[in-house]
């Protein structure tokens, strides 16, 4: 005969994992209905590995390339945008669809609202100029600096592009070093080269 305490403690050894997971999924739906989801994120497959995409009500706020620490990215979003951040892939269906089409070579421009709140000042102007470089074309750090209003700030333009929160959709891969060198890329130079080849910008 086990003691009363032993019998009560048995409850601890019973798994509630599945019931709690279902409760959590229902809760996320309720949170969306109550408009309490400030940032929705999803992990999506791509030819360049898993990407993490995040949207606010305004639009896409971040795309994190494969190789970046996803937890760090989410912590950063929680701090800079809002801690009410949820994995809610349904809210990113359109983003995923356009990215799939782009990687399949079937889409030449993105038709997605963007939330620029992670960029400011000169960097924001550089990135907005970058967003206008057409598919299949390339530009230079110097030209982006000029478009952002300071032709001599080539290095700052490079830094702005390095800090691009929404790569691929804001096509910083289309910006090369003055003179034609590939420059840098957060996803690695082979990825930059592959994107430019796919777009027909380089051979």
């Amino acid at each position: 005969m086990s003691t009363l305490e032993d019998r009560l403690e048995r409850a601890q050894r019973v798994s509630v994992g599945e019931a709690a997971a279902q409760g959590a999924a229902r809760f996320v739906k309720a949170a969306e209905e109550e408009k309490l989801v400030d940032v929705a994120f999803a992990r999506v497959d791509s030819p360049f590995g898993e990407l993490l995409i995040a949207s606010t009500r305004k639009g896409v706020v971040q795309l994190s390339l494969h190789g970046y620490d996803q937890n760090e990215t989410l912590e950063d979003l929680a701090h800079k945008v809002s801690p009410r951040i949820f994995e809610a892939p349904g809210r990113l269906d359109e983003v995923r669809r356009e990215l799939d089409e782009y990687f399949a070579g079937k889409r030449k421009s993105f038709d997605l609202p963007l939330d620029w709140q992670l960029s400011h000042g000169f960097a924001l102007r550089v990135l907005k100029a970058t967003a206008r470089i057409p598919y299949g074309r390339v530009s230079s750090y110097r030209e982006m600096a000029e478009k952002a209003g300071n032709v001599r700030a080539t290095r700052a333009a490079g830094n702005a592009l390095g800090g691009n929160a929404i790569p691929i959709i804001v096509p910083c891969h289309r910006v090369l070093r003055t003179g034609g060198g590939l420059g840098g890329y957060g996803g690695g130079l082979p990825m930059k080269e592959a994107l430019l080849k796919m777009e027909g910008a380089i051979l």
């Binding site: 959590a24 989410l74 912590e75 929680a78 701090h79 801690p83 009410r84 949820f86």
Partner: peptide
Amino acid sequence: MRPPPFQAFLD
């Protein structure tokens, strides 16, 4: 303390 992403807190 900065609150972690709510999803991590929930999980």
